[in-house]
Design a protein around this nucleic acid. Structure first.
Lengths: 399, 399
DNA sequence: ATTCTTTGTTTCTCTTTACAACAAAGCTAG
DNA sequence: CTAGCTTTGTTGTAAAGAGAAACAAAGAAT
């Protein structure tokens, strides 16, 4: 029951080939999700005719998206020909910019990284721009024959439609036209996205089965700040001007140990970010810590895992506030899953009970059975998110 | 870039007639939104062929959804034949249950009410069930020749898919199978929805132009409790089990003057509902009020409009908390519009400044330019919502 | 060895849009 | 007032693509 917007009707009307586009996309996604799979099985499950599936499979093979990988076992008749995604061919170039490091990687259709390089992120915007362009151009040249597309994840506010970075709080960068620069330099198509949204997208397409199968979930990315990515009906929610999903700055009351990136002390981010956890740890040590600068969240989590009392307490206190925000999102959106991402999830066993306890307190008598789980994407979810921007578009539009 | 869910692929695949269904729906919505309009103009705007538009218009005329209303002015050639929705024919029956009154109405395709009856709502569930069924059956019988569909709005938790009322806090009704009862009794198709969601739907289809044209907005229904309805991408967001959009119960801290319907004092509803406003007014009077029971929100708003000091203060204080919740939703979802509905909006001029001030404080430097506006649906938005449930489905699927 | 199953392909029909030609109706201008 | 141009709406044909059925290929079962 979705409203039709007349302004964009031209893009929405169905032409004779629309029908093929839709079915092509469905077949491609079957191959992606259920491979190895035969034409006949796709036909059975989709209720398309075998002849139709065959025609679509032919065209997907020609465009190099899927391949045959031999015969399957007979179930009383002719053996099925099994299909899978064509892997090993570079199709996506991902740029993952985080406050500490920047990673550039090339991946195939399955999201497998074929080549990757990392360098530390510099606060100098011009230097970073040059460096990124230089490395991307080099890789683009190397893989010239495969027409790559680029995806980029940035920890800040992004206008996805215009392809502009509006604001990166950590470095105080504003109005960065990196997309246009890369596009004119390499001629490759580029998609940019906020880090929390990119991570959410990565979970949607490449994450745990429970997440991939949920139409509605919330991603909570705990890092320097606290970002939220909302997936609604299998789609990233962006709101106006791409600033949708900044629940990190909702008011939860109280007095946080640090200011948030917008300078407030009563919002969720101020209470629950890595910065807040570290500040709590410092306060517990009564300021007799020396190594002020090189103490980071990884060290804190490390200490907590090894049982250091103060570190455990700092993390647990932080997770209580994390729980309050999560419970707000649970009552407000009642998603199927809440996914928590970031370094703090390495100490998941220390914080999971607190999260559930707070959620139970505020959400009534098991009405909603939202699952809270840590990210399943390993240690570089934002990189997978950057690559996912390209891959998701390929699977969602089937060229 | 929307994910495809294979579980439901059967429903999603494009058949030869899918193409016609899609275009039919677009043409119908043009007639609804831009009437009077000619076939040629629809063809120009949609980029469909004139012949295609003609064929679709013919079928829509045959199914009785649109009619020709004569000739328009020539612009240098043959005069266009103008089309509009066929009005005056009953197509939707709406049931609007509120804590005080229950209204049953019959409306045409344009949402114009053709007949309406109201009776006071009783806390006796069996009595209400009988009464509603009796009245609906009577109307269904009267309009037997037009096959009506039914929409129902209920102030509580609803499982839309199963067609069950899970919980109505005001009367403490649980597991009410009203839909099934009506369906077996009348044989008519029925759609049920939570009141805030129904109101949001009504605004989306029949509200102010600014709301109709916004893909993302939030409806805040201030009544006994405080409900939120969220429209994402032109679609009502329901979350799991229909309990999506209960942001009324998010934690905002502090100590509210009353308990919310879930028994908490630190959530948004406890601070900002009509109940909270009335409690504030009572507190300001230092308990020297006599008419304990028949004092309701209408009286309070009335007093405030006429300048009664305490009433104004109670409303303004309530609206400050309303503002905090609104600002949370603004930073979290950055919707195009926030629509406030309920009796309190009759004193809009008294509260609008406070709402904007709070929103300005928490949302940074004009990044998001969300508009806050009162409902534009007159004094029975939930009734229009109930009717809208039927009409929206007709326009969204074009039978 | 014969029959039944399953897979994948081929052929024909049906739906629906696109395109082009045409008729209808009206304006304009010499 | 008639010829030419515009705009609207209709009609007829071609092309795209799914559905259905028949068929060939390949294997299992009896």
């Amino acid at each position: 029951m979705k409203r039709i917007y007349l302004q964009k009707a031209k893009a929405q009307i169905a032409r004779p080939n629309t029908i093929r586009d839709i079915n092509k996309q469905i077949v491609l996604n079957y191959v992606r999700d259920r491979s190895p799979i035969s034409r006949a099985e796709i036909a059975r499950e989709t209720e398309l005719q075998r002849s139709t599936v065959s025609a679509i499979v032919d065209s997907l093979q020609i465009s190099g998206m899927i391949i045959e990988i031999g015969m399957g076992d007979s179930t009383g008749g002719r053996k099925p020909t099994l299909l899978k995604l064509k892997t090993g061919t570079p199709v996506a170039l991902g740029i993952d910019l985080t406050p500490r490091t920047t990673t550039i990687a090339v991946a195939d259709l399955a999201g497998t990284v074929l080549e990757q390089e990392t360098f530390s992120t510099s606060p100098n915007l011009d230097f970073m721009t040059e460096r990124i362009i230089e490395r991307v151009s080099s890789l683009a040249e190397k893989y010239r024959e495969f027409d790559l597309e680029i995806g980029m994840s940035v920890p800040g506010l992004v206008d996805q439609a215009l392809g502009r970075v509006l604001y990166v709080p950590y470095f105080n960068w504003r109005d960065w036209d990196i997309c246009q620069r890369i596009e004119t330099e390499t001629g490759l198509k580029i998609t940019i996205e906020n880090d929390a949204n990119a991570t959410a997208l990565a979970e949607l397409w490449f994450g745990h089965e429970m997440i991939r199968k949920s139409r509605n979930f919330v991603m909570i990315l705990v890092s320097e700040g606290l970002g939220t990515g909302i997936v609604f009906d299998g789609q990233i929610y962006r709101g106006e001007k791409g600033s949708g999903g900044e629940f990190g700055h909702m008011t939860v009351g109280g007095e946080a140990p640090v200011e948030c990136s917008w300078g407030r002390r009563d919002c969720w981010e101020a209470h629950s970010s890595e910065k807040a956890a570290i500040a709590r740890y410092r306060n517990l040590l009564h300021e007799n810590d020396l190594k002020q600068n090189d103490f980071n969240i990884t060290s804190l989590v490390e200490l907590a895992i090894h049982g250091e009392e103060h570190a455990v307490r700092a993390l647990k206190e932080t997770s209580e506030y994390l729980g309050i925000g999560i419970s707000n999102l649970m009552v407000g959106l009642s998603p199927q899953v809440v996914v928590v991402s970031g370094n703090i999830t390495q100490a998941w066993h220390l914080i999971v009970d607190d999260l559930h306890r707070i959620a139970q307190q505020t959400v009534p008598h098991g009405l909603s059975q939202t699952i809270i789980m840590p990210s399943s994407l390993g240690d570089s979810p934002t990189l997978i998110g950057a690559l996912g921007l390209v891959l998701a578009r390929k699977f969602a539009s089937a060229s």
